[in-house]
Amino acid sequence: MKTEILLAGFGGQGLLFAGKFIAYKGLVEGKNLSWLPSYGPEMRGGTANCSVILSDDPVGSPIVANPDVLVAMNLPSLDKFEKDVVPGGMIFVDSSLIERKVVRDDVKAFYIPATRLANEIGAPTLANMIITGKLIKEAGAVSYDNLDDALHKVVSAKHQNLFDLNKKAIECGYNYAD
């Protein structure tokens, strides 16, 4: 099985971080994987995206042109990448920031008010992880078990508080029913 994931939004929304967490989750589960960021002169505020491929076989090209799963955390990202998703694929939309719905009817769309939920649980910077929680539940690319193992790889043990918050955000997204 192979899942190609594209996470896109503004720089600073933590999409590269979310991608890294998913990649580590795959690593812990013994999958083959790649993580590839877009890189450019915009350090903050511009568009940022990263591609994650999880696969049972070795990963060939790390570039994701037609994702099985798209996470869109701002409108420009949804506008840009909606058409690229494979038929039957999934799109995860931060509905607190994107008002419009997914136009295509051959993909499965999930609307999560991630930014609002993040504020509600006291983790305003972790909308990325809320949407990741939902992705884990619906996409089946990685499992929900042993979150701690992967989370420890991306959040330093020195920041226990941050670790707990990240976990809370993932759980929040996982349990969110739209």
């Binding site: 990649a23 083959n32 790649s34 993580w35 960021p37 990963v59």
Partner: peptide
């Protein structure tokens, strides 16, 4: 690409 990408 190889410089920027992450893999195990």
């Amino acid at each position: 690409t190889i410089g920027q990408m992450m893999e195990p």
